[in-house]
Amino acid sequence: MTISQPAKLPKKAVVPKQAIFAKAFHWVNIISLLLMMSSGLQIYNANPVFGGREGWHFPKGLLLGGWLAGGRDWHFTFMWVYSLNLLAYGLFILISRRWQQRYVSSSDLKALQVSQNAKRKTYAWHRVVYTAIIPILLLAIASGLAMYKPAQLPWLASLFGSWQTLRTVHFITVPIVLGFTLIHSLLAFRVGSMRLIRSIFVR
């Protein structure tokens, strides 16, 4: 068995090729999350998670829907787009077996501990971070569902303990996702510069 050497790479860097599913997931995920967050903050303001009616309210400019009912209209519409997009992408990485190669592996963890290669380490961090966001995206759905239908899904609601804990967990997914977006973008930039970032959105 021979391992063929790749042909000499052209001087001009190759544009990374991304699967259409990966691109579609990123677009739909960003748009639906923006709408979920801004409508979610509208709902938050009806009775702030921290401090109740006397608590701090988010400024109007960040809110979607005009008032509580409008915020709920957006939230309970785009919950479908957000979660079905995540489901479709989940099926894609399952069927295409991407979960075996594209996500954090023991070799990444080993590289973080022993590797002297800074590039390899950055790449390992990149994979750690984008793998770690998946449970957070699922947690947003689970905690949201538990609040949406606590009487019909009591087992799910009771997983979170008290109602206040449930509300806090659901809310806290917002700053985590925002922080992730920043770090994920920075790491993607360090791994593959603007070429890599552009490749996941355009071509």
């Binding site: 979607l64 829907g65 009912a69 409008g70 915020g71 709920r72 209209d73 519409t77 239908k149």
Partner: peptide
């Protein structure tokens, strides 16, 4: 926020039949 209430109403009216069906099934 100017036009957003009426847009939200349209968005809500579009999804409400589906959401109501799901709620009836869950009940």
């Amino acid at each position: 926020s100017c036009a957003s209430t009426s847009i939200a109403e349209q968005v809500g009216a579009t999804i409400d039949p589906l959401n109501q069906r799901v709620e009836e099934l869950l009940l």
